[in-house]
Design a protein around this nucleic acid. Structure first.
Lengths: 138, 138
DNA sequence: TTCGAACTTGACGTTTACGTAAACGTCAAG
DNA sequence: CTTGACGTTTACGTAAACGTCAAGTTCGAA
């Protein structure tokens, strides 16, 4: 496992375009080192990319994601900073729990619809067998 | 509880604009009755609005949400339709479970960061008391 | 040293999900 | 009968998150 990566290494690995990585950097979500004009990515950047992608899957905007990844490496600092951080973390936690509740509600709804479907499917099955019987008897 | 609602009734209730409700209709997500040129919304439409909002909170696009709400009232139909429906429902279920896994991972990460914060905060606390002691003794 | 692959920075285009403004219809109240 | 609150359609504007050129730079291999 190499310790540094080019932009297209990272792009390939996470299935995003180089353009996307540069855009995320311009939005303050990444800050790779430079080797002359070229970007050099390290483990820290890979971790961030994973966090960004996960945030996107959860429907957060890039601005929100920037805030979230900020939480991860702002864990140094003095007392005031730290307790502020803890409050923001508690907020994010509440958001995530709310989202999970939405998901559970959706899953329950879909399960209900599926149950309906299967019941109707079973009914149709019975009917089909009935008409088959009639054909045999006639 | 009235049985029909105007566009601004619904907009107020769910804290969206009338423009939004018209837009969702133009995208095929709602289909209120008409009283002349005016829209008349009923319980069915309210249910859909709730589903749309929940879908948005979960980061689905309007196109995906249209597909999802379609599942709810497509539960009539014949055998082929029904088993197709069941497959789509299974897909959505997998998506939702994946999202919930992302959420759980995020919650675990944040819990880790929070733990770090509290540990460092406790350390700072001890230091502060130490220097207070020194001041008293000097 | 020169070629091509990969990198760079603009700059403009695109899609999604509406906001906003214009111009008009409707209807109950004063 | 007009005013104001609400509704309508049509059309253009906008922010987010990139895609897509364009035009130039860098660098390892031939």
């Amino acid at each position: 496992m190499p310790s540094s990566f080019t932009i297209s290494d990272l792009a390939r690995e996470y299935d995003v375009t180089s353009r996307t990585l540069r855009f995320w950097e311009s939005e303050g979500l990444l800050s790779p080192r430079r080797e002359g004009p070229h970007r050099l990515y390290h483990q820290r950047d890979r971790t961030r990319v994973k966090l960004i992608l996960r945030g996107q899957r959860l429907g957060f905007t890039l601005a929100e994601i920037r805030e979230i990844v900020g939480l991860y490496d702002a864990a140094e600092g003095e007392a005031g900073q730290l307790s502020y951080l803890l409050r923001r973390i508690a907020e994010r936690r509440r958001e995530l729990l709310a989202k999970r509740a939405d998901i559970d509600a959706s899953l329950a709804d879909l399960a209900g619809v599926a149950e309906n479907c299967e019941r109707r499917l079973a009914e149709l099955q019975v009917k089909a067998e009935g008409s088959l019987q009639e054909e045999v008897l006639s």
